[in-house]
């Protein structure tokens, strides 16, 4: 029995001994902290970057506000892709970034309605107004306005349309806009306000209809990319790549508008 325990301990020690070797990656792959709203587009851009340069990047997705908080707490990110310039400015003031970065995308807000929902995909939100009045909408998904830019813009748009007070009680808040979209499509909500680029992703488009909400109803969704203090050469190359013709074409295909168009 002692031998059995000895073997067990020895086995564990061997496993532990192998771990440092496995941990020490030969070259560090930069980490891109990105707003969840660019999830699918950015995955394509990262793939294209890898094909062209041979270098990969790792993506860590969340709400821009949460990612900015993690950067302040010391998260080892190289590049920050925020859906709101405000977070970049805050980080610059705090000395966490090299500069103010660059605006690289313009996002749009869209109403998504899962197939089978009693709500119509009407970007003017007229049917949402009617549905709130007659009780067709019990749950409505947006991202958390506290720290998710798309959630903040959704709140602005709903306020602009005069629906905020009526819809407040029925909101389900996603941690980020990706989770809000997932809530809206899970069948537990009649619809939601999310990023247009997410709504266009095949996995979502197959299960929901989407309609653009007028961009004048909310502050612009100006996505900003900024290099963080620890960024290495690959991260800088990826930062530059975001404005390359190839990347711009991919972003456009995913439903983003581009600065300078």
């Amino acid at each position: 029995m002692l031998a059995a325990i000895g073997r067990l301990l020895l086995g564990m020690a061997l496993v532990a001994a192998c771990i440092p070797a496995a941990l020490a990656a030969p070259t560090r792959v930069p980490v891109v902290a990105a707003a969840a709203s660019v999830r699918f587009a950015l995955a394509d851009v990262a793939d294209a970057f890898q094909r062209e340069t041979g270098h990969g990047v790792r993506l860590s997705l969340g709400s821009s506000g949460n990612l900015a908080r993690q950067i302040r707490e010391g998260a080892p990110y190289d590049l920050f892709l925020s859906a709101d310039p405000r977070y970049v400015e805050d980080l610059l003031r705090g000395g966490f970034t090299r500069d103010a970065g660059k605006a690289y995308l313009l996002g749009r807000l869209a109403l998504i309605v899962p197939h089978g929902s009693p709500l119509a995909a009407d970007g003017s939100l007229a049917d949402l107004r009617a549905a709130l009045a007659d009780g067709r909408v019990r749950r409505f998904a947006i991202a958390n306005p506290e720290h998710a830019p798309y959630g903040q813009r959704a709140e602005q748009a709903l306020r602009h349309a005069g629906l905020w007070d009526a819809i407040r009680e029925r909101l389900v808040l996603g941690e980020n806009v990706g989770q809000a979209a997932q809530f809206a499509l899970s069948g537990n909500a009649e619809g939601g306000l999310v990023g247009f680029a997410l709504a266009r992703a095949p996995a979502l488009a197959a299960r929901a209809s989407a309609a653009l909400v007028p961009s004048a109803w909310h502050a612009p969704l100006s996505h900003r990319a900024v290099l963080l203090n620890g960024a290495d050469a690959i991260a800088r190359a990826f930062f530059d790549y975001l404005s390359s013709p190839g990347a711009r074409a991919l972003f456009r295909r995913h439903g983003f508008d581009l600065p300078g168009d």
């Binding site: 699918f40 997705l61 080892p76 990706g178 997932q182 996995a203």
Partner: peptide, 20 residues
């Protein structure tokens, strides 16, 4: 949520659900 560093399998499940 950093792949290869702090993205455990439980977090990956959460992430995959958000990616549909």
């Amino acid at each position: 949520n950093i792949p290869g560093e702090t993205e455990t399998i439980s977090i990956a499940i959460y992430d995959r659900v958000q990616a549909f």
